[in-house]
Design a protein around this nucleic acid. Sequence first.
DNA 1: TTGAAAGCGCTAACAC
DNA 2: GTGTTAGCGCTTTCAA
Lengths: 364, 364
Amino acid sequence: MSTLSEVAAHAGVTSATVSNVLRNRGRVGEQTRQRVLEAVAALGYRPHLAARALAEGRAPTIALMVSSIANPFYPEFVLAVERAARTNGHFVIVCNTNQDPLAGRAYLEQIAGTLSEGVLVMNANLDFADLHQTQARGTPVVLCMWERPNDPPGLPCVAVDFRRAGELAAQHLLELGHRHIVAIVGSKRGGIHAARYEGFVDTLRHAGVKLPRTCVRYAPDTIEGGYAAARELLELHPLTTAIFATNDLPALGSIHAAFDLGRNVPQDLSVLGITDIQLARQSRPPLTTVAVPTVEAAEMAVSLLRELIERPPAAHHAVHQTARHAAHTARNSDSAREQPRICVASEPRLIVRGSTGAPRRKRG
Amino acid sequence: MSTLSEVAAHAGVTSATVSNVLRNRGRVGEQTRQRVLEAVAALGYRPHLAARALAEGRAPTIALMVSSIANPFYPEFVLAVERAARTNGHFVIVCNTNQDPLAGRAYLEQIAGTLSEGVLVMNANLDFADLHQTQARGTPVVLCMWERPNDPPGLPCVAVDFRRAGELAAQHLLELGHRHIVAIVGSKRGGIHAARYEGFVDTLRHAGVKLPRTCVRYAPDTIEGGYAAARELLELHPLTTAIFATNDLPALGSIHAAFDLGRNVPQDLSVLGITDIQLARQSRPPLTTVAVPTVEAAEMAVSLLRELIERPPAAHHAVHQTARHAAHTARNSDSAREQPRICVASEPRLIVRGSTGAPRRKRG
DNA sequence: TTGAAAGCGCTAACAC
DNA sequence: GTGTTAGCGCTTTCAA
């Protein structure tokens, strides 16, 4: 691993010059530039990113917090984030909080501002206070998929209208003629899926279709969770013709439950979810779902983060600032907080596949 | 973001002392230690990881190269890697090579040795020459799942006996009484899945069961790939009673194909794969498969990497070395190369679930 | 037990 | 155009 000054020596110039040609800064004579380039090639020089980070006062990485990358939704998202980040010259560090706010805090404390110049948060079950703190310390934070555009979280975020997703789902079921519907909510009551559920229920209600409490289950956001919930629901309400799940995983589990109960999907039972993860396409029958703009959201999140990194929102009281690097500006916080940026991603849209259909006229 | 010397000033000591108390190095008086700790708390000091990396000559991260994290197998692996890495004090940077060796090289060139002190390679379709080069430059590299323990790759690796996995699969089918078998290989002919396939074929042959060329398909290692291959195979060989796929994803696709062809699994057709990804448990019917020790391999890989980082294998010719940091040792390469370490993970084992059974006596 | 000082590899003023 | 110089925040000899 050769260093800048080794290259400089080899080219008979000074390291500043090498630095300049490498970053196309400052005017450099054509011949020196050539000599430098040769030296770089000859020595196989590669810049030391940690050193550069230190000197520049900024890191080449961003941290992506997820609760557990094993959730089949995340990898798709991580992929998109990584792609977008790369084109901005950032590497991404995956931080599995494992649903534990303490683990999340530990990550934030170590990484934010020292190894990563920004933090992306994807439903990682983090303490908002921690997030605000890292922000106050000067490291931009953005929430990747805020579920309620009309109810801003007080942090920069990209919002996706999940309420609308719920509405779309209900509408589809209604149009098909379903009236005996049950719902599986993939989070705690009032939890993260609340907006999806409300959109669904409200739409049903407007159409005069009730969804009594016994027709909804709060379950883990997994295939197994959906499976168990669907079985219970189906056994309790044998006349059910459609199951709505607030996420694809439980919807997939519901299809399995139907299968095990000897019910054919979609002939005997319609099932639909929200998100459109890859698996949705790959189930038998393929899952009807309300697609959410995952990749778009990832890209927006990355670009919002980049923006925040480049031009940190001015703090209201101009803070005493001796620091050489502007990135450390937004230091103060509570007294005068400006509205955090919020980007709204495009609307969810219904994707009709094989798991929904009209209910049978009569059921046995 | 306060710095060491700010803390030092606040505590009335010098930054060296603060550094010492923070890392429990050097003897420090109990009272100064207390004052320092208070100052740290008061200022909310957190060490700057990039600065530390530069000073120590080592980075707190490792790079994990994968071809595309969207493959459902990887996240499970990434999760395990991340956990293991964290307990070693390393963050992990995910590098999607996207099947492109050039992308892989770009990653290696930028990251290795400058931002990451080690690289883990998980089937990332990389150029071995690049890998050797980064190793020669002093950054340890380990291959995460080498498929042929008896045929070392010339790089440190953790090996899993995938040939054995193929044997186990064949044995299971044989014991159930299957004789009309087809196979789907999830890689190019002679590609990464070759060992699995050979183990399978050889075991069949020893039992006197032939697997003619028309009974095997090389297909993409995906659900869709398996689906298409299975359909072809099944249409070509209607008497088939069992499908073996070298990976779970194509096996899952095969189940779908059977479904669409009106064949019941396992009554009309048995299907099995290799790996035991989470999805295998969650299909209908659940997939019989040969489980491979994913988590164990991840942990072994991380710990092998750590070992290599801590005690880099001595180069044979003691290389001229002025560098202050020992990590830059193993610089030379080809003429006198010592045997790279290879760790063998525990054996694959058969997991019988619902997708395999005895063949029907007679078929219509 | 503590401090002074050098240096990790790089960038960025500023001077020449 | 190119070199000089002073750091970035930390660790680590070596002295005191």
